[in-house]
Amino acid sequence: MSAKSRSRAPIVPYAVWMVLFVIAPIALVLYYSFLDLDRHFTLANYRNFFSSAYLTMTLTSFWYAAIITFFTLLISYPTAYLLTRTKHKNLWLILIIIPSWINLLLKTYAFIGILGLHGPINALLETLGFDPTQMLFTDFSFILVVVYIFIPFMILPIFGSLDKLDRSLVYAARDLGASGWDTFRRVIFPLTISGVKSGIQVTFIPALSLFMITRLIAGNKVITLGTAIEEQFLVADNWGMGSTIAVFLILVMVLIMMATGTSRKGGRA
């Protein structure tokens, strides 16, 4: 498009909007992270953050996010692969995506019933001869529910990159005598790594910042960075400390974005 056809006017509302809702909020979070309860300047929040309790919490939060991302990828990759090989693949893709459009809270709420002592999973266990157990309020149920929620978000970018994959490369590899596993490891996976990266990006960052599921499903036994921010802001009324954790989360986000390359697909949960 040539420059003469353009006017600068359209960008004004957008630029104002970005300053107001991207730059200003981030600057404010940074500013607040240096304030104590009386709104005086302090470095205490950062000192506090690097104390043992918060460091442990941060590490566990990363650990859970890593486990969640791993299982989500493990389940989603084959699904995406099989989807590309179905007849009406776009229709099937939409059907996989629809559950991700159902409100997150509703899905979480469903699992309160499903995992409960009198829920269907325990009923199944009982008919198989096992003793029913309370599955709510455990690490296991937390990971299960979060993986369930993230699966569609992970499938979408992987499906996209698999779909673009040139099949002739796969056939060539097979013709040259590569085993199925070798073909996957040396040809398919490396060629779809960009989709995997976007998938990890849309899973890992939200997994660090989940807060509502930690309460409803894990009974507060899992504390993520997100839970800590929410508690500091809305329960403890300590915005300074909450902002400090948020600053840290923003830094992690930037690092992950740089590591996985900025992607186009957004996913939030």
Binding site: L37, Y54, I223, A236, M241
Partner: peptide, 16 residues
Amino acid sequence: WMGKYSEYFMEFKMAL
């Protein structure tokens, strides 16, 4: 002091 109570409660929850 309310802040301190919250801080200690948070520390307890992180130990869970």
